[in-house]
């Protein structure tokens, strides 16, 4: 199992379109992938889970991957968050 903490840096936070990108990325991997804040942890393969996570700009989230391809899954997740989900700001 791997764990890493990344900040949410895009302006709109984990909104619907960004969450959709996370789900798509997560679905590429067999590992279980979870995203968590201090209060709760949700399945990264469920858009509704991600949407109910209070993750606005400036929040730090913990990514947890667990499975055969956990290392690849983790680097893909981290890259997506760092890349502001492909958004400009």
């Amino acid at each position: 199992m791997r764990k890493e903490t990344v900040p949410i840096i895009n302006k709109l936070g984990l909104h619907a379109r960004a969450a959709a990108k996370v789900v798509h990325a997560a679905n590429q991997y067999d590992s279980e992938i979870f995203i968590g804040t201090d209060d709760e942890e949700v399945n990264a393969k469920s858009i509704l889970g991600l949407l109910t996570l209070a993750a606005t700009q400036g929040t730090s989230v913990q990514i947890r991957t667990d499975g055969q391809d956990e290392e690849e899954a983790m680097s893909a997740m981290v890259a997506l968050f760092k890349n502001r989900f492909g958004e400009d700001e």
Partner: peptide, 19 residues
């Protein structure tokens, strides 16, 4: 592409096991 992705989110919501 960017405008299509809102529909993508809607599709994921419809299919979400939590829904």
């Amino acid at each position: 592409e960017e405008y299509g992705s809102i529909f993508d989110a809607h599709k994921l919501i419809a299919l979400d096991p939590g829904f």
